[in-house]
Amino acid sequence: MMFPSLVHDALVVGAVLFVLGLVGILTRRNLIVMFLSAELMLQGISVSLVAWSRYHGDFGGQALVVFVLTVAACEAAVALVFVLQAFSRTGRLDAAAWQELRDAEIPRRIDRELPASDAVSPVWPQLAPAGILPARDETAEPEREHV
């Protein structure tokens, strides 16, 4: 019998999510974003498991996804505690702040050419100062018929 195209597409989606999470956890330096990437990998696995569950027509894969959810919740709770501890020790959410723990033969990583700040600074809205009576706009008067 033909391999269902929906299952095929779902497996590809699961693979893409897994690879995205893998690249994220390899490259990003922020501890929180690294954990988000790990959760993304778990999501990819969940999609693959449910696709196989549909293909085989039983609920083993879906039951496994329930346990994946449970483990993800536990992992997030414990990991976030450790992230908070690490932050309170170093004041940074930087994974490279803990490179003293590396192996002896691995050279120390030194950041070069760190961008000083973003090229585009965020544009914040300008609020009018409060407590001043606004000047009346004569041209806008006809629009304010209910005031």
């Binding site: 390899l26 330096r29 929180i32 976030l80 908070l84 950041d111």
Partner: peptide, 19 residues
């Protein structure tokens, strides 16, 4: 946790990646 731990502004380690 982000709100608790995020420093003001964007941290420099958010703007670089490992390899």
């Amino acid at each position: 946790v982000l709100m608790l731990a995020q420093p003001t502004g964007m941290a420099p380690y958010d703007r670089v990646s490992n390899e």
